[in-house]
Design a protein around this nucleic acid. Sequence first.
DNA 1: AACCATATCCTGACAGTGTCAAGATTAGGA
DNA 2: TCCTAATCTTGACACTGTCAGGATATGGTT
Lengths: 215, 215
Amino acid sequence: MTDSPPKLRDAPPADPGAARPYHHGDLRAALLAAAEDELADRGVEGFSLRQVAKRAGVSHAAPAHHFGDAQGLLTALAAEGFRQFLAAQAAREAVAPPDPGEQLVAAGLGYVDFAMTRPALFRLLWQSERPDFTDADLGQAARAAFQHLVDQVAAAGGDSTADEGAVWAMAHGLADLLAAGRLESMLTLPGETREAMIADILRRALPPRGASATG
Amino acid sequence: MTDSPPKLRDAPPADPGAARPYHHGDLRAALLAAAEDELADRGVEGFSLRQVAKRAGVSHAAPAHHFGDAQGLLTALAAEGFRQFLAAQAAREAVAPPDPGEQLVAAGLGYVDFAMTRPALFRLLWQSERPDFTDADLGQAARAAFQHLVDQVAAAGGDSTADEGAVWAMAHGLADLLAAGRLESMLTLPGETREAMIADILRRALPPRGASATG
DNA sequence: AACCATATCCTGACAGTGTCAAGATTAGGA
DNA sequence: TCCTAATCTTGACACTGTCAGGATATGGTT
């Protein structure tokens, strides 16, 4: 990932002194950005809608007009998060060899990238019960991420439930443990060494050589 | 796992009508059991200390005398959970072939067993920020679980950071995704088929054949 | 230019939460 | 028997999410 991830932020964060106009301008985007900051600071379990409103410089009930309730805000944030999650994988794939296996490894590296770069958002996507996963937009974004995996596994010469499960589980396990600060002996490695190791580990999950693409 | 996991429950759940004695008898154990039920019903993020007290049939402030605050209760529950987590692995190992590799696979199956049998508790251990992981008892229990993995990896002929990470990540990824209800195509398989598949997937993470035990 | 329907945002209220302080009740030892 | 300490309850406070109703600005219409 060469360039920084796209920020949701838009409006300046409540410039005190300057009489804030009654209408914010782009409160929706500001709230999403504030919500991600809040998640990063206090964690998913310490998340407070009122604090998010305070961060954005609006009253505690303002978010309701854009997201309904707290779940609505977190659902919208999660949907946007899944899209950026997929983008993180695509960014790695773009600079990887075109070989299907290497593309799959690259996607795994992007998976881990996202988890380590934005752990709070990663936790919201995968470890939280607060977003409404039956929401249409969120469901579509999440399904797109999964479908990308399925396609890649098929391209790499495996299409069984086992192959999908193995690749997904390995990438997810690495991402989750690393984002949570576990796997300390790996976190203390220099960046390039660690990346090479993660790639090697991801390769273990790939469909066995010579696996048929039908089945 | 032949026998049901040891329940923390001890006292009957607030027999209404019978005048409850002022002193509970074993409120500490009852609160731990009620807390796990509460986690199962409302999730880690919906956890309410007052609800736990209500479940146990005591006043809302009673838990404080045994656990200090909500974090204390969840910390104690997590410590107990880690011990049972390790026990779930040991149960699988006991009925597996003595081969080091198969023992490692068995541990992974126990890992997944625990996650699928008691998903709420699993989430508390691995995906929550509420327990105090600097607590001595919890830290020791968690470290014991990790140490067990390290020992097993070493016995299986690998002792590098990469081998530990691969095995841990694969087991953890499978457990996490399955406990969260993802990997649907795997969840719908009949029990034995699924178990065999999980075992096969776990084997992919094992140290490569002929790896030296030194390094 | 004047107006108004509507979107946007605020204030105030309510029930529920975790935690603290102070009092009531019981157990166990002197 | 009495007294100390542990156990549990009651009441209060600040905080949370959400709802109802009022204030303010916007953009199109006349």
